[in-house]
Design a protein around this nucleic acid. Sequence first.
DNA 1: CCAGCGTATCGAATCGATTCGATATCCGGC
DNA 2: GCCGGATATCGAATCGATTCGATACGCTGG
Lengths: 355, 355
Amino acid sequence: MSNRERRATISDVAKAAGVSTSTASVVFSGKVNVAEATRERVLAAASELGYTGPDPRAASLRRGRSGIVGVVLAGHLRHAFLDPVTTAMMDGLTDALADVSTGILLLRDDPFGGEAPPIAEAPMDAVVLIGCSDRIREAVEIVRRRGMPAVVIEGDGDDDLTEISLDNREASAMLARHLADLGHTRVASVALPLGPQRLRGLITPDRLDDATVGVTLDRLAGFRDVYPDAPVISTAGSLIDEGLAAGRTLLGDPETRPTAIVAQSDLLAVGVIRAAEEIGLRVPEDLSVVGFDGIAVDGLGSHELTTVVQPALEKGRAAGEQIARMLAGEPGESVHFTVQFRPGETTAPPARPFR
Amino acid sequence: MSNRERRATISDVAKAAGVSTSTASVVFSGKVNVAEATRERVLAAASELGYTGPDPRAASLRRGRSGIVGVVLAGHLRHAFLDPVTTAMMDGLTDALADVSTGILLLRDDPFGGEAPPIAEAPMDAVVLIGCSDRIREAVEIVRRRGMPAVVIEGDGDDDLTEISLDNREASAMLARHLADLGHTRVASVALPLGPQRLRGLITPDRLDDATVGVTLDRLAGFRDVYPDAPVISTAGSLIDEGLAAGRTLLGDPETRPTAIVAQSDLLAVGVIRAAEEIGLRVPEDLSVVGFDGIAVDGLGSHELTTVVQPALEKGRAAGEQIARMLAGEPGESVHFTVQFRPGETTAPPARPFR
DNA sequence: CCAGCGTATCGAATCGATTCGATATCCGGC
DNA sequence: GCCGGATATCGAATCGATTCGATACGCTGG
């Protein structure tokens, strides 16, 4: 009711109930037995005074825990959440963290070099870093200095931090080999962004040198293990529209047109297939396409794409579990996941075996 | 370096630098002038001791602010972020909040009646409630008692809380009238969920009584303003696949088939169009379809759908701005937004004007 | 009837910073 | 040479809870 008055504190409640603040405190935290009568008296006093429970700010100072786990996503939020893999990971993460945290703090990885980045001054107990740009590296350094547990998902781990990884290279090689086994020799690839600038276009050796996104590089390396000299186009993100644009470029010239395309994500693959359909190519008869991720996308019956399924939800969950462990004082353990090949209906032997 | 030792505090730093803790404090907060020499001495001592800046927990207790704004989304996270409107709002929100907050705390609106809901014990300065179920009502109550500013986006506001709203009813009526003007008399609608159970199927009067989602009801009311008796099917969410399923149901029987369908979201509309195409109906010749939202969806050239465009980003931004105002001590003001009609190529006069 | 034990409550220290009024220092001006 | 007024620094109170060792009390068993 009272608007401008100071809010009641636990010692006000204690006083009103005729007990010590310590007793009042345990009534709320429940960590110690309290006589039923006392408990009721305190609760009554609390509701009398409009006390809504311990101030989380004070509690977190005293306990040294705020119950908040931060998540840093590479790139802008809107962009990140467009990716089904990211959302699935977030889902697994929140799930695994439910017991140990009240919520997930979404941190912008500040593009502006403003005084202090949020990651340096947010009241959190631990951090999960998802995706990886050069900025992440910096973030890891800050977090480490602050002495809080951190888990990196799909970052380029150099040293001893806990990370959740995927066999990107092997998986990509497996997909490429699948195409090679079918007899494809003229193959191209559509890649995820190479760096924070998200430049589109053919990947050249010097662009590779500047690249910072580990996932892209690993998947590319796997592809190149099988097709060392094949052309690769980078995109601005894992989007159907990006795959469409890249597909148009790759398929534009009938002379140089590949017979198969390895897309670094399912969404890109869908875009490539659209591009093929646009110009009258049939998939898989005229063009084979493989993706990566194995996610179900709304509006696309998900059963046809030949791809590898990555355990996105489990990755998030694993990250959450490691955070929970580390908060409990145990050391974190890196976890490595493996994809599963899922044959679909978008690959077939090339129409006119080349050569 | 030291692993198990107590972390350095600001008074350690002050001692090492030979100044008072108050001086050391202002070196970090920058709120008061400090002589350059002193500042450097303190900074040197800090880095010497591995001090990484004031503990956010302590700071937030003292200041009474944690710099965190909570966001409660109806339903599960994964689901919420699938909706482009939600992500756009989040974008606007984080944007407007950048100055006043270090990050957005994603709160689950706990499905389990576990002791204390996160919203009651998270250390945040204000809350934004998005979407509206009955649970939100409860949440508002808690937040109000805790005395923190709150803004509701598209909730069913009863009393004096600050809310961001949209002219859902008028907009829907406008769309329906557009169809009426074209001559459609046999019209149906595909609605968003009515309640947290997200039941699919024909909406009956008694189902309406139990409905809790304001947006759905408002859009439905607008539609019924023009077509009072038309059939309406509810879906489990704003998804292409849901629109597809509903479309199949509505269009299944050639006898009762409508000549136009009002979908309560663009994604639903896309699904309906797919359903029409499946059974060989042409849009708009055989079936007119209108949507709602006016968002650009990846993978769908967005230029054809007849719809209304809602300022999703601005809604989020407005919410953020109101939060910022309220945190500055000014009273919050509700903001009402208006959609804009965007004619597309999915509506036309009915093929055989009925009757 | 008393020793011994378990349970409920209490006191006081502590978490780590921020902030404001007070004090010290230094300068120019008269 | 002294006073008024900036400017920089300091002291101490305070934010609101949690926690642990100590105390008081009631009960059981010998």
